[in-house]
C-alpha cells in the first residue's frame, strides 16, 4: 500500500488528532490526579496525539495539533495563568521532541520521555519567572522523575500503536 498522503488527507488527519488531543486533555481534567500528592502531576495523555501527529504527519502538524489543544483547553476549562504554564510546557516539550526525533538516535519511547520531562521543566521554569522566585526548583527533581516515567509509559503505548499503523513513509 502506498503511504503518501494528499494535502486534504493530511489536514483531515491533523484535525482528527487535534480533537483526540483535546478529548484526552478533557479526560485528564476529569481525573483528580492532584490527589496523588505530587504538585503538577499529569499523565500527559494529550501528548499521545501530538506525537502521533509528529510521527505520521510532521513537525508543523504536531505544533498545530498542540496549539489547537491548548486554545480549546483554555476556552473550556482553563485559566489564563494556567494557560501560560501549559504553553511554556508544550513549546519546550515539542521543540525537544522534534530535535530528538531529527537526530534519528532515539526511538519513540526516548522522544516521549524527553517530551514528558521537558513539559514539566518548562512549567517549572515558567513558575519561576511568574512567581519571581528560584525556590520552585525544589519541585524539579520529583517533576523530572514523574515526567520521565509518564513519558516512558506513553512512549511504550505509542510505540505499539505506531508498530500497527506504521510510521510516515517518504512522500
Amino acid at each position: 500500500m502506498k503511504n503518501t498522503m494528499t494535502k486534504t488527507k493530511k489536514i483531515a488527519l491533523a484535525g482528527l488528532l487535534a480533537a483526540l488531543a483535546f478529548g484526552l486533555s478533557y479526560i485528564e481534567f476529569l481525573l483528580p490526579f492532584d490527589a496523588v500528592g505530587i504538585p503538577g502531576f499529569k499523565l500527559g495523555l494529550a501528548n499521545l496525539a501530538v506525537m502521533l501527529a509528529l510521527y505520521r504527519l510532521g513537525s508543523g502538524e504536531a505544533a498545530a495539533v498542540s496549539g489547537v489543544r491548548l486554545v480549546l483547553s483554555l476556552l473550556l476549562f482553563g485559566s489564563v495563568t494556567g494557560f501560560l504554564y501549559s504553553v511554556a510546557g508544550a513549546v519546550l516539550s515539542l521543540a525537544g521532541m522534534i530535535v530528538l526525533k531529527r537526530t534519528n538516535r532515539f526511538g519513540v519511547p526516548g522522544v516521549s520521555v524527553a517530551g514528558g520531562v521537558l513539559h514539566n521543566a518548562g512549567q517549572t521554569l515558567c513558575a519561576m519567572v511568574i512567581l519571581g522566585t528560584a525556590g520552585i526548583v525544589s519541585y524539579l527533581p520529583l517533576l523530572l522523575i514523574t515526567g520521565a516515567v509518564t513519558g516512558a509509559v506513553n512512549g511504550g503505548v505509542l510505540f505499539m500503536i505506531l508498530k500497527r499503523i506504521g510510521e510516515k513513509k517518504h512522500e
Partner: peptide
C-alpha cells in the same frame, strides 16, 4: 526502541536524583 531511549530515561532519573541530593 533503541538503546539510547533507555540511556535517556536512566540519565534523566539520575539527574533528578543528583539534583535532589544537591538541594
Amino acid at each position: 526502541m533503541k538503546k539510547n531511549d533507555l540511556f535517556l530515561l536512566l540519565g534523566v532519573l539520575l539527574a533528578a536524583f543528583l539534583l535532589f541530593l544537591g538541594l
